[in-house]
Amino acid sequence: MIRVQLEDFDIGQEIDALTAGNTGIGGICSFMGTVRDMAGGSGADDAVSTMTLEHYPGMTEKALAQIDAEANTRWNLAASLIVHRYGELTPGDRIVLVVTASAHRQDAFEACQFLMDWLKTKAPFWKLEASEDGASWVEARESDDDATARWK
C-alpha cells in the first residue's frame, strides 16, 4: 500500500492499521526519514529553515506502487506500506515512512531497506532546502545510486 500526502502521520497508528487482524505476522520493520537541520546533511554552516518537497502527481503514486509491488515479488511479505509527504516541512518533521511485515524477520528487514533504496532513486520527489543564505535544490548522491544498484 502506498500514500502520498501533505499531512503528517503517526508511525504507531500506521503500523496498527497495516497489521490489524493479521496474526501470521511475526516481525515488523519500519524506517522513518525526517528533515535534518544541516544543508546537504554534511555539517554545512547554514542551518536549514525549511525543506520543500516537490513531486510529480500521478507518476509519484505509480512509481511508489511499482516499487511496493517489486518488494512483494522479491520477499514474502504479509503487509507493506510506503507513506511519503510533500510540501513545506521544517527540521524534525517526518518525511517518509516504510513499514514491512512478514512471518520471519529476514523478509521484513531486507524489504524495508530495499524499499527505501529504490524509492530514493526512482520516486519523482525533489527537495528544496532554504536557509538564511537562500534556497538550493538538494543534489542526488552517487551513494544512493550505489545503494539501489546492489539490489540486482
Binding site: 519523482p124 520527489f125 525533489w126 543534489e139
Partner: peptide, 10 residues
C-alpha cells in the same frame, strides 16, 4: 513528457 533533475526524495 517530463524533464527534471535526478530525484532526491526519501
Amino acid at each position: 513528457v517530463a524533464f527534471f533533475p535526478p530525484v532526491t526524495g526519501g
